[in-house]
Nucleic acid binder design. Structure first.
Lengths: 191, 191
DNA sequence: TCAGATATTATGAGCTGGTACTAAAAGCAG
DNA sequence: CTGCTTTTAGTACCAGCTCATAATATCTGA
C-alpha cells in the first residue's frame, strides 16, 4: 500500500509535536521532507490544530496545572482535625503518581501524606519532622482512595510521638511513626 | 495634568491583563473605551508584548513547569550508580519546596530523594519499598544543594537493606535505612 | 498496460492579530 | 494663539495559518 508512508509520517508527526509543540507547518515540512500542504492535510486528518491554537491550549491548561501543583503541596485533603490528638486526611492516587514499571504508587506519596498530616495535628506554629519509621504493607495502585489517620501517642516537652495509619478500603496499606519537634518557643531545637 | 488619565489607564490595563491575559488589543480598546492605537502605544510604553507572545510565554512556562513535575518524579539527578552497591544523586532545594511557616524544606523531598535513589540502586526490574527508617538531623533551607549517597549494606534473597545519607555542604542533614523488596522473580506476575 | 483511485504539491484569496511608520486631530496650559 | 502632549487614524507589511481549486505524482487492480 502507498499509504504506509503516510501512516508512518502521521505517527512521526504526532511524535514530533509531542516533543516540541511549538513547530510551524513550515518547520514540520522541512523535518519530514514533504511540502507544507501535506503537513496541513496531515494535521487536518489527525485533528491537530494549528500552532497558535496549540500554544493557546497549552497556556490555558497551564493555569489549571499550576493549581494542581499547589494542591499537591498539601498532599491530601484534611477532613478532620483535633489538635494534639488526631487528624484524618484523604488522598486519591492518580495515574501520574505510580511507577511506570510496576503500576504501584510511589512510596513517597504515602510518606508525604503521613508526614503532612502528622505535622498538621501538632498544635505548633513551627514544627519539623525529626524521625520517621515507615512500613509499606500492601502495594497501592492508581485509583485508590487513601485515608490516613494520625494519632498523637505521646508528648514529651517539645517532642510529639505520632502514629499514622493509611488505609485503602479498610485495608491497612501503610503505617508510620514520627517524632515531630516543635520549634514554637524561644527554645532552640537540637537534633 | 492630562497624563493622569493615561497613568490610570496604564494601571487598569496591567490589571486587566493580569486577570485575563488572553485579550486582543481590540477587546482591550473596547473595555477601556479608547482606540486600538492607544492600547498599542500603552503596551509599548509598559513593555507588554502582543497577545500571541504572551500566550506563547505562558505555554512555554507551562511546559517547563510540567517538566519540573516530571523531574520531581525522578526526585534528584542520578550522577553515579553501581548496581547493587552504591548510588549518588543530587537535588537542589527550590523556594517552592519549603514550608511557608518556617522556610524549612518539606521533609518528604528528602524522603523521596532517598527512596528514589534506594530503588534505583537495586538491580531489579520491579522493586518496592518495604520499610523505611528516617532521621532528619539538620533543617534544610531553599538554595541547598543536597547530595545523597545510597549503599546496599546487606542482601537477603529478595530483600535489600540500603542506607542513604544526604549531605548539604558536607554536613549530614538526613539519614535513612530502607528495606527494598524485589519483585523480579519469574514465579511472580508477568505480562 | 492503462484507467482510476489515492497521495502529494502548487497556487491564490482571505483571515487574525499584530508591528512600524506617518500624519492628523484633540486637549490643555501658559 | 502657540506649543506641547495625547489620542486617533491610516497605510504597508508580516507570520501563520484556513479554505478552495487544480495540477501532478504514485500506486493499484483488472
Amino acid at each position: 500500500m502507498n499509504s504506509t508512508r503516510k501512516l508512518i509520517r502521521h505517527e512521526r508527526l504526532q511524535h514530533i509535536l509531542h516533543d516540541n509543540p511549538f513547530m510551524t507547518d513550515e518547520q514540520l515540512a522541512k523535518t519530514l521532507k514533504v511540502s507544507v500542504q501535506t503537513i496541513r492535510l496531515d494535521r487536518v486528518a489527525l485533528g491537530i490544530p494549528e500552532l497558535r491554537e496549540r500554544t493557546r491550549d497549552m497556556a490555558e491548561g497551564a493555569q489549571s496545572k499550576l493549581r494542581a501543583i499547589d494542591k499537591k503541596d498539601i498532599v491530601g485533603e484534611l477532613i478532620d482535625l483535633e489538635l494534639n490528638k488526631v487528624g484524618i486526611s484523604t488522598l486519591k492516587i492518580t495515574p501520574d503518581m505510580v511507577l511506570e514499571k510496576t503500576g504501584v504508587a510511589r512510596g513517597h506519596y504515602m510518606f508525604a501524606m503521613a508526614d503532612t498530616l502528622a505535622l498538621a495535628v501538632v498544635d505548633a506554629q513551627k514544627a519539623l519532622t525529626g524521625v520517621g519509621n515507615v512500613k509499606y504493607k500492601v502495594p497501592v495502585y492508581a485509583g485508590a482512595n487513601l485515608v490516613a489517620k494520625a494519632e498523637v501517642t505521646r508528648r514529651r516537652n517539645d517532642k510529639y510521638f505520632i502514629c499514622v495509619k493509611i488505609k485503602n478500603n479498610n485495608e491497612e496499606v501503610f503505617r508510620a511513626k514520627f517524632i515531630i519537634v516543635s520549634l514554637d518557643d524561644e527554645r532552640k531545637q537540637e537534633e
